[in-house]
């Protein structure tokens, strides 16, 4: 989809959303006529451990029906890893480059037209892109790496149902791409305990300071409901268990060799919190988002595929 189509689609989506709101959950309307979306097995969440990033992802995505279940031919995809810091892959502050590379490759295999990758970084964006190894990974996979440093690329949107965050400036690629794949890395965080899928969204908006200033956890939860990713891939290969989210040295990192995939952003974070050693309910924004009905943090009610390599 290109820019012109985007506006057309925005209007249509608005109409559709309005209709959905009027008639309630539209899936119920079409129940019985349209086969339920998702893979035959219908897993809500897939967790993999003891493998290398590429192999783990291949196995996990296959169990969700393959990338074809998410990306249709000729669609545009935006992959949003965490590239926030000017550190090496070994430090675990940014998403594993191999994983990012594999996701892009899979998207193209599924027929994607263009796969964009970007992050609104904390450290200087060009150094982050380069030293995280993600620049090379994207280039090798044929993806399009987009700088996230220009305010002109962010568009003002209103956040419906937001309690503290009523509006935000969101990167146009998030708004214009057909498919949004969120690829955070699991890390410790000084004030929100962990950072994973939902907190990774801080890199698709322009003004992060506003969030920090106006109840960080509530803002994270508010925004999680704005544009739910079509797929969340939580990289837990190298996990920064302390001094996050930037970390100081490789001593902060534990080799966990795991991966979580879920369409449910709250469930993905809940599982990540468990792996990290925290209760999901203790992580304020997970609880808030779950309460707001954005997703489910109760892992016992989900169908989970647990894979050991």
């Amino acid at each position: 989809m290109d820019r012109r189509d985007f506006f057309k689609k925005s209007i249509l989506t608005g109409v559709a959303a309005g209709a959905a709101m009027t008639f309630g959950d539209f899936r119920k309307i079409f129940a019985g006529k349209v086969p339920p979306p998702g893979p035959p097995a219908g897993y809500d969440l897939v967790a993999v451990k003891d493998g290398e990033p590429i192999q783990m992802f291949d196995k996990a995505i296959a169990s969700l029906g393959g990338m074809k279940a998410f990306v249709k031919p000729n669609q545009t995809v935006v992959v949003k890893p965490n590239i926030g810091w000017d550190t090496s892959p070994e430090r675990g502050a940014n998403t594993n480059p191999d994983l990012v590379k594999r996701i892009i490759e899979q998207c193209y295999s599924a027929g994607a037209k263009t796969v964009y990758v970007f992050d609104n970084t904390c450290d200087s964006w060009n150094k982050c892109y380069e030293n995280s190894g993600i620049q090379k990974a994207v280039k090798d996979a044929g993806g399009k790496l987009v700088p996230g440093n220009s305010e002109g690329n962010y568009q003002q949107v209103s956040v419906k149902n937001g309690k503290k965050l009523k509006e935000a400036k969101v990167h146009e690629l998030i708004l214009s791409s057909d498919v949004f794949i969120n690829v955070p890395v699991l890390k410790s965080h000084g004030s929100s305990i962990i950072t994973a899928s939902m907190k990774n969204h801080m890199g698709i908006v322009w003004d992060r300071r506003y969030w920090h200033k106006n109840d960080l956890n509530q803002c994270i939860a508010d925004f999680a409901g704005y544009r739910k990713p079509d797929l969340n891939v939580v990289d837990a290969y190298r996990v920064m268990t302390k001094r996050g989210p930037r970390g100081v040295s490789e001593e902060d990192v534990v080799l966990m060799k795991s991966l979580i995939l879920s369409k449910d952003i709250v469930a993905a974070d809940a599982a990540a919190a468990k792996m990290f050693g925290s209760e999901p309910a203790d992580v304020s924004y997970i609880k808030l988002a779950s309460e707001a009905g954005i997703g489910s943090m109760d892992l016992t009610k989900l169908s989970i595929n647990r894979i050991k390599m």
Partner: peptide
């Protein structure tokens, strides 16, 4: 250099905590 370990973190040998 040395700061406290997070003991609850999933170890490579552990099973999934969920």
């Amino acid at each position: 250099k040395k700061i406290g370990e997070n003991k609850k973190t999933m170890k490579p040998t552990d099973d999934f905590p969920f």
